[in-house]
């Protein structure tokens, strides 16, 4: 048995699990849509579907249960790479992720772990 505060609890548990994803998703999506350098990649007709994708991404980045494979990441972003998705955009998203977590009061060392998980997808997302 271990509890939430135990040093062995997972990153996902330490951040606060699914409720933390729910708390973060509007904040994160609003930052992304308000950033003119990246908003066009996210500005689809269907905001609800896009928000669901953001939730799946945050769950993964928070170290939670997810079904993403590197191949999925590649396929899902291939169209965006053709449209010009590059390192600067990727950095901006990781920045917004950190901004959201800081605003929600998540400890800097946990934010660094989230950023590292996001970083691990860079090559797949950018199709390299």
């Amino acid at each position: 048995m271990h509890n939430m505060s135990s040093p062995t609890s997972s990153l996902f548990e330490q951040i606060g699990g699914q409720p933390a994803v729910e708390a973060a998703v509007d904040n994160f999506y609003r930052r992304v849509l308000s950033d003119d350098t990246v908003s066009h990649f996210f500005d689809t007709v269907d905001l609800d579907r896009q928000r669901a994708k953001q939730k799946a991404f945050l769950t993964m980045a928070f170290g939670g249960p997810h079904n993403y494979s590197g191949k999925d990441m590649r396929t899902a972003h291939a169209r965006l790479v053709v449209a010009g998705l590059n390192d600067a955009h990727f950095d901006a998203i990781v920045g917004h992720l950190g901004g959201t977590l800081a605003e929600l009061g998540v400890a800097p060392e946990l934010i660094a772990q989230v950023a590292a998980i996001a970083e691990s997808t860079r090559a797949d997302v950018l199709g390299r």
């Binding site: 998703v25 509007d26 999506y29 849509l33 308000s34 500005d43 269907d46 905001l47 928000r51």
Partner: peptide
């Protein structure tokens, strides 16, 4: 509706 939804969300309302 989509335009309003986006603007009202960006202006602070929870989705």
């Amino acid at each position: 509706v989509q335009l309003l939804k986006r603007k009202i969300f960006l202006a602070g309302a929870a989705m």
